[in-house]
Amino acid sequence: MDTLFDLPEPERQQAVVAHYRLSDDQYGSPAEREAIYDAERVMTAAVEAAGVGEVDGNEFGGGEAVLYAYGADAGALFKIMEPTLRSLPFRPANVVLRRGSRESESRVDL
């Protein structure tokens, strides 16, 4: 038997994508970026401790900060991240929970 071909199918990854409006049309202020980095560190530790996925990074530009996280269950991932996501003061803000296809996305306003 060739075990190379008997590997289980990888689990379909779900996503939590948080969007925050910043104070300018570029990358936000240094204090805003630092707040995002701090929140990312807190969420990374919480998500890893809960074993629900991984916080995969951020993106700044166009007056917005976006945080990305992936795991097997977007709802479980969001539950762990939600307190920190809500604690960030930047508004408007929302989170997209991707459970597969675009048709199965849901949006939560923060």
Rank of each mutant, 00 (worst) to 15 (best):
L4G: 14
L4P: 01
F5N: 06
L7H: 15
L7R: 15
Q13L: 13
Q14W: 08
Q14H: 14
V17Q: 12
A18I: 07
A18N: 06
Y20I: 02
R21E: 03
L22A: 13
S23E: 00
D24P: 05
D24E: 05
D25C: 05
Q26T: 15
P30I: 07
P30Q: 13
R33C: 12
E34F: 15
E34Y: 14
I36Q: 09
D38L: 13
A39D: 03
A39W: 10
A39N: 06
A39Y: 07
E40S: 14
M43I: 07
T44H: 12
T44G: 07
V47G: 00
V47P: 12
V47C: 14
E48L: 08
A49C: 03
G51C: 06
G53L: 05
V55I: 01
D56A: 12
G57E: 05
E59Y: 15
E59D: 11
G61V: 07
G61S: 12
G63K: 00
G63H: 04
A65G: 02
A65K: 02
A65E: 03
V66Q: 06
Y68R: 02
Y68D: 01
A69D: 02
A69Q: 01
G71A: 09
G71I: 02
D73H: 12
D73P: 10
D73W: 08
A74L: 00
G75I: 02
G75L: 03
A76Y: 00
M81W: 04
M81C: 04
T84V: 09
P89K: 04
P89D: 10
A93G: 12
N94M: 01
V95Q: 00
V95G: 01
V95F: 00
L97Q: 09
R102G: 15
E103I: 04
S104V: 05
D109W: 12
